[in-house]
């Protein structure tokens, strides 16, 4: 049985074609085959959000996405958030307002925050808390993350 298949998709605007196991996790393929190590593994069960990426405009946990479901998709990882040297407003706010500490949840948190502001440009605190509810952080107690999101859209 040959369970390797060709999967074609775009990552951060770049077309990719890879031979992969159909059930391989997107997370592993990003990190190991495409060297996009900004996407982190925290729990492997969709609980912590460290592996968050955006697929076709929606955030997903890349640890729960098998490669067979990636065919034809457009993916944005943390590496694709900034425009060259120009950081996204969310990234800059996380630096300026203490939204990142150890940094391991940060890529996923930034993507969740970018997605939130794409859907809801002026979220309330309630919206922010719920928008980020799938992303766990053990360092910050979340306060500075909320503040970073607010500062990002008020900029």
């Amino acid at each position: 049985m040959n369970n390797r298949h060709t999967v074609e998709f775009k990552v951060n605007g770049e077309a990719r074609s890879l031979e992969v196991f159909s059930m391989a996790r997107l997370l592993d393929v990003l990190r190991e085959q495409l060297q996009l190590t900004g996407t982190k593994e925290g729990c492997g069960e969709g609980e912590c959000g460290a592996c968050t990426v955006i697929i076709d405009g929606q955030i997903v946990n890349s640890c729960l996405v098998p490669m067979a479901q990636v065919n034809g998709c457009e993916i944005t990882t943390i590496e694709g958030v900034a425009g060259g040297d120009q950081l996204h407003a969310v990234q800059q706010a996380f630096i300026d307002h203490g939204g990142a500490q150890c940094g391991i949840c940060t890529p996923g948190m930034v993507l969740a925050a970018v997605d939130l502001l794409n859907r809801n440009p002026e979220p309330t605190e309630h919206d922010i808390r719920n928008g980020l509810a799938g992303n766990l952080c053990r360092c910050t107690g979340y306060m500075k993350i909320f503040e970073s999101v607010v500062r990002a859209y008020k900029k």
């Binding site: 969709g46 959000g49 968050t52 929606q58 955030i59 997903v60 946990n61 729960l64 996405v65 969740a112 997605d115 719920n130 928008g131 980020l132 509810a133 799938g134 992303n135």
Partner: peptide, 12 residues
């Protein structure tokens, strides 16, 4: 639906 997992789970 809104109380099942986080948003990334709800999308999937």
């Amino acid at each position: 639906a809104s109380e099942t997992g986080g948003l990334a789970i709800q999308n999937r």
